Computed example of a mutant assay.
Amino acid sequence: MTEPLHIGFIPLVDAAALIVAVDKGFAAAEGLDVTLVREVSWSNVRDKLNIGLFEAAHLLAPVAIASSLGLGHVKVPITAPFNLGLNGNAITVSPALHAAIMGELGGDPLDPMATALALSRVVAARRKSGAEPLTFGMTFPFSTHNYQLRFWMAAGGVDPDEDVHLVVLPPPYMVDSLANGHVDGFCVGAPWNSVAVDLGVGHILHFVSDILVRAAEKVLAIRQSWAEKNPEVVAALVRAAFRAAEFIEQPENRAETARLLAQPERVGVDADVIQRTLDGRLKISPDGTMRESSRYLLVGRESAGRPDPVQAAWLYAQMVRWGQAGVSPEALKAAKAVFRPDLYDAALGREGKSADAPGAIGAFAGPAFDAGDIVSHLGAFRIGRWKP
Rank of each mutant, 00 (worst) to 15 (best):
R243G: 10
A221N: 03
A371C: 09
V40L: 07
V164Y: 05
G107T: 04
L18S: 02
A100H: 02
E351T: 08
V327L: 15
S376D: 10
P329M: 08
V195D: 10
P171S: 14
L49D: 04
A118K: 02
E232Y: 07
H206W: 05
K333V: 09
A96C: 06
N146G: 15
R150L: 12
N83A: 15
R281W: 01
L69R: 00
A240P: 13
V197F: 01
P264W: 07
L32M: 03
V183R: 00
S376M: 03
R46P: 08
L278R: 00
N146Q: 13
G130L: 01
K75E: 12
V45M: 08
G384E: 07
A241D: 12
L278A: 08
V338N: 02
R340V: 02
F26L: 09
L71R: 04
Q275L: 14
I7V: 11
K387I: 12
Q250E: 13
P112H: 14
E132L: 12
A116S: 06
A15Y: 08
L59K: 06
Y316N: 03
V168Y: 03
E39L: 13
L205Y: 02
W226L: 07
R127K: 10
I383A: 07
V267F: 05
A114P: 06
W152Y: 11
P133K: 05
Y316T: 08
R127N: 10
L97C: 07
D308C: 07
G31S: 05
V188K: 05
A371E: 12
E39C: 00
F142C: 06
G156V: 03
P251E: 14
L348S: 08
L260S: 04
L71S: 12
F242Y: 15
E252L: 11
R276F: 07
L12F: 10
P367I: 09
G200I: 04
A346C: 00
R239A: 08
E302L: 01
